[in-house]
Structure formats: structure tokens, C-alpha cells
Computed example of a mutant assay.
Amino acid sequence: MAEITAALVKELREKSGAGMMDCKKALQENNGDVEASMDWLRTKGLSKAAKKSDRAAAEGLVAGKISADGKTGVLVELNAETDFVAKNDQFQSAAREFATVALGVDGDAEAIRAAKTSKGEVVQDAITNLIATIGENMQLRRAARISVANGAVAIYLHNKQGDDVAKLAVLVALEGAGDAAVLADVGRKIAMHVAGTPTPPLALNSDELDPEVVAKEREIQTQTAMESGKPREIAEKMVEGRIRKWQEEVVLLKQPFVMNPDQTIEELIAETAKQTGSPVSVKGFVRFALGEGVDKGPEGPDFATEVAQMSGAS
């Protein structure tokens, strides 16, 4: 039997993303053949994949793509249990492939999971196979698609982990009949603003704010005003003023542009319209930050234990 060295185990782990002891076992079963061990990991893992579905998956990647004509953009969030897996080539390739699939699917994450990859494999089946090979729970958590009839959709990937994949991604759609290259450039700058501003925008304008979010803010401001001891009529006026100020802070068009704080995004759009000689409007934006809103639950796999166990491979 071939000698199963730590270096060989490390090579298989980096290629497959599977755990150290699983990689060692696979190599032992396949006489040190890395490719055969990859197949072994996948075959043995299929029966275990369903058992992993209740484990928290808050790590992973956001993948983004823009269509060839520049008028459609998509984001998909593919989650795994650990950041280690997010660096795996197979995982990153899958995220990119699912984003490509999303460009051709006019639907949500469920529709994408039911669609087929370029290899003819159903996306959900591809995810199951990844779980089987790598040994962690994974899920295509969410997806977004935005298009314009005329104009451009721009993308910005923050904290990139590879081609088309990052920890945070933003799409911005600008509608207009002017130079698409100019619109794409301005759109990307606005996307960078959405990614980097200290107060991420909650909506494009005040009319699009979630009524429940507005009501909660109003409740907070009312309570604060009443505790100040002001008469009710004055307190109510204070609340209205604070709500207007808060709305300007959390809606994209009213925010100061991070690249030029003396100019709002709304003013930047007006300037762009003059530059292109045609009306320009922000049709919409999407911001995906990896794992936001996910209950991470118990801690994931203990890799320190795996390293200690690995001392037997030499």
C-alpha cells in the first residue's frame, strides 16, 4: 500500500474540502490515488448528506454575474458551515455556475434550485453532491435578479474570494437611454457606496421603506420624546422631524455619496443625466452580505481536534 503522508492528505483536503480524517480514510481505501479518493468521498458521502441538513450554514460566498448585454445582473448566496470550504475551488466553481444559471431563470432561489446547470445537472442535485463530497451542510439560501430595458446594471464585489465571488456584493440598475458605458461606471460607483457607507440603505426612497420598519422607528422616537418631558404636541412635532431626518439617512437617493460627501446620490444621478443628455433613474439596487440574518446556532466542526487527530498521518 502507498504511504499516506500528511502532504497527500493535505492535497486531497484542499482539492475536495472534506475533513482531514475523511481524506486520510479515502486515501487508505484507494492506495493513495487522489482522483479515486475524490470519487470515493463523493460516493460514501451521498448517504450522509441528508443528515447534515439541520446544521447551521452561515459561511460561504455571494456570487454575482452580469449578462453579456449589461442589462441584467444576479446575485446568489451559497452557504456552507465553515470559511475553509468557501475557499475550496469546487465550492467557488459551483457558486459561479449557480449565478450563471440564475441569469437565465426569472425566479427566486427555489426556481434556481430546480433549474439545470450547463452540464445538465439539476442545481439542487449538484448541491447534494457537493455536500456528499465535502462533508458540510450547504444551501442556496437566496438569489436576486435585476434588469433594465435601457441602461446598465453594475456590480461591485467587496472582499473578493475569487473570480465573481465575495463576502459582500451589490447590484445597482440605472435606467436611461444615454451612453451605457457611462451608466455602468456610475452604477458601479453607487454600488461601491452601498457596500461601503456606514449606514447601508434600507430602500431606494422613502416610499419604498418597509412600513413595519418605519413604525418601529416612530415608536422609538416617540418614546424618547415623551421621556424628555416635552408636552405631547411638541413631542409629536419632534418625532415627525426626527423621522424625516432618519429617512434621509437610510434611503439611498438622499444619502451623501461616499466619494463626494457634498453631493447626494440623487444629485449624482441628476449630474449623470446632464452628462449623458438623457434622463437617468435608479431602477433599484440589491445588497447581499454573507450570512446576514442567519442563526448560526452551535459552533461548527472542531478543526483543532482534526489537526490533533492528524498527528497519526505521517
Rank of each mutant, 00 (worst) to 15 (best):
R142Q: 08
L130Q: 14
K65P: 09
M138F: 12
F84I: 08
D207M: 10
E248F: 06
E208A: 11
D108V: 04
L130K: 09
E175R: 11
S67L: 04
K65H: 09
E3G: 06
G196R: 07
V280E: 10
A195E: 08
V122K: 13
M259V: 15
K44D: 02
A63R: 01
E81P: 04
M138H: 10
E236I: 05
R55A: 09
A143R: 00
M192C: 02
I234K: 03
F84K: 03
P261S: 02
M192S: 05
A111L: 08
K15Q: 10
M38Y: 00
T222C: 03
K230A: 10
P231W: 04
G312T: 15
A203I: 12
A144I: 12
H158C: 04
A169D: 12
A173H: 06
K216M: 15
K254M: 01
Q221Y: 15
A313V: 11
K160N: 10
K44Q: 15
V239N: 01
A191H: 01
Q275E: 15
L171P: 01
T133K: 13
G284D: 06
M259E: 11
E227N: 13
L253Y: 07
E81M: 12
A109N: 05
G17P: 04
V286T: 03
E11Q: 14
A6M: 07
G241Y: 10
V213R: 10
Q275Y: 11
L174A: 03
A50H: 14
T128A: 12
V85S: 00
L27H: 03
S278F: 09
R96W: 07
T272R: 01
P301C: 09
S278N: 11
K65R: 14
A57W: 00
E35G: 03
W40V: 13
A68C: 08
K230N: 12
R142V: 01
V182W: 04
A50K: 14
H158T: 06
D106Q: 11
D69K: 04
V280M: 07
E271C: 00
K51A: 12
Q28C: 01
E81T: 04
V34S: 12
Y156C: 08
Q92P: 08
D210F: 06
A99N: 00
Q221D: 13
L140I: 07
Q275M: 11
S228M: 09
